[in-house]
Design a protein around this nucleic acid. Structure first.
Lengths: 206, 206
DNA sequence: AGTGTATTTGTACATTCGTACGATATGCAA
DNA sequence: TTGCATATCGTACGAATGTACAAATACACT
């Protein structure tokens, strides 16, 4: 009986299981994409049985929503973790901020797929749209924070910051998309450079 | 027997049928999105039987690929139809070019959904990725054509045109996405204005 | 009018999907 | 130990999916 071939089952808290399922779901999203996510693929990736999904979640929609919430949190955390804003000039902070989102870690296929699928999924799922919107707003708030410092230094107008935020945020989304499309390193750096040049044009130094 | 209730069937050419199916598929893509497109929904929308799809197409993947090809053609045609480039200055042409893609016709939910889903679908389907890439390249070529005129007028460098194209193309994609996200008219105009300002900054007039 | 080919239809089938559920295992309190 | 709530598993089931296909229909041609 000690040579039991069954793998030992140990109970976990419902919280843990939910987390495991969500993590497995994210791995599925990275591999097969949002359109082909299925409950059985999640079960395989998390090495737990199919029944867990209906036991711990109301339905697959809840799994999807929670998974994108989790993914969004990961994207935000990774963005802000190595952002030391203290020791640089505002324009240097801006360059660092822009560069962080396009470091090799973020340009991996997996991350980009989740990001782009998130845009598509938001079209059909109201709750996912809210998650995407919040991701956008947080990122934007961080950008505006830096742009305001530039503005103080250079005596720009409030409307300038809004215009720059609207434009740069759009450019960043477009650059992520374009990286997935062309994998053109020069184009990516051109885009980021373009953002900096725009800031300098709208709020010129002295 | 003359009071036959069956609707009269008339034969059509295979070409016509393919077109009808593709048009119906596009309508489905606009309504339910790429992730939930099914053969039966296409059949209902085109008022023809399910069998047609397998009769005229190899499989559903071919339908999807052809439908996105068709959608891409529509987006391109609509972009370039009312683009009279002859009678204006280069910078005015640029403004007109940018504005065309963001006219009310293009900002309809249906069009944006197809555009955004196209990005997502391209992640999983190689052929769709090629279609998306071609849509990008054609649009870009048209933008560069105008930027080159600005460059001639203002004696800019070739690298300037590349930087502007890389940046503006990204910004436009991002602005479409952002319109779907926020429906903010001011933000959209800010973004387009930002593009023009960037051009003036990189290649200043005199 | 008759014949052959292409078109059209509806249904059938094997899969796969999300979800429900009974059976069993586990951990904890009494 | 016993009792009980919770967790875990595997399976079952109806619905929906893509595709195949036989039968029926329309039409061009002789």
């Amino acid at each position: 009986m000690t040579e039991n071939t069954r793998k030992p089952r140990t109970f976990r808290s419902s919280q843990d299981r939910r987390a495991e399922i969500i993590e497995a779901a994210l791995r599925c999203l990275q591999e097969v994409g949002y359109a082909r996510l299925t409950a059985r693929k999640i079960a395989e990736h998390s090495h737990i049985s199919l029944g867990h999904i209906t036991y711990h979640f109301k339905d697959m929609n809840e799994v999807l929503v929670e998974t994108y919430r989790y993914a969004s949190r990961i994207l935000l955390d990774a963005t802000f973790q190595d952002l030391s804003r203290s020791s640089k000039t505002p324009i240097e902070q801006l360059k660092a901020f822009l560069g962080t989102g396009f470091s090799p870690a973020f340009l991996k296929r997996d991350y980009l797929r989740v990001r782009i699928d998130l845009w598509s999924a938001a079209l059909s799922h109201e709750e996912i749209a809210l998650t995407e919107r919040e991701l956008y707003e947080r990122y934007r708030a961080s950008l505006i924070e830096i742009l305001e410092k530039v503005r103080e230094e250079r005596r720009g107008r409030a409307a300038d910051v809004t215009l720059l935020a609207d434009t740069i945020m759009a450019t960043l989304d477009g650059l992520w998309l374009d990286w997935e499309r062309r994998h053109d390193d020069g184009a990516m750096r051109n885009g980021l450079d373009g953002c900096v040049r725009l800031v300098n044009a709208v709020m010129p130094a002295e």
